[in-house]
Amino acid sequence: MSATTAEHTHDLQHEAHSHVPPYHVQLKSNRMGLWLFFISEIFLFGALFAARFYLWYVPGVGQTRPELSQELGLLATTVLLVSSYFVFRGETAMEHGDRSRFLNSYMMAALLGLVFFVAVVVMEWNVFGLEGSIAGIELFGHLGVDDGVYAGVFYAMTGMHALHVITGVMLLLFVWNRGRKGDYSPERHWGVEGCALYWHYVDVVWVFFYPALYLIGTAVH
């Protein structure tokens, strides 16, 4: 092999061996990283879930739960589930290159997420100490800090979940903003996909939290 060929080979190697992983490898890494994060968060929500069954167990009575507004819980749950539909709709639209439908769907999902957040923090937690009712249904929760482990677990579980919801809303809006500027294409839209996955995940967590908080056990106090 002559010297020039050797140099030429070396140049070729250098070009072929780019130091940035190709897009499909990075996409695989991104997906795996996000799923590992979800597995990690199972332990976070799982520990809270376990704490609920540990602390709300009353010997002789069995599992208990605080008395909460069933209407409010059902409303919040419905809103969150519907928001997941819009995220799905938006992601599918992006895959088909329909940008305006993608943008509308993500904005809608973010708004519904905000409604959920308001339903939990403003209405159920009643942070502003409001009162009021529509058609005999109380609009604001009455659980207070002095309600012992019932308040503790309820605030901890809904609070940790609401933190994830508000993070998700922010992510949806960031992605919406970048989508508006034309950053995503049907071939390359990891931001859209990752955000959608995260939103569905937060939704699934609530599917476990809702019955644990509102349905399982005897209502007491």
Binding site: S40, F43, L44, A51
Partner: peptide, 13 residues
């Protein structure tokens, strides 16, 4: 990446 989350809950509470 898994167990750390449970102490996060313990410390949060």
């Amino acid at each position: 990446f898994t167990a750390t989350q449970t102490i996060a809950v313990a410390l949060t509470l």
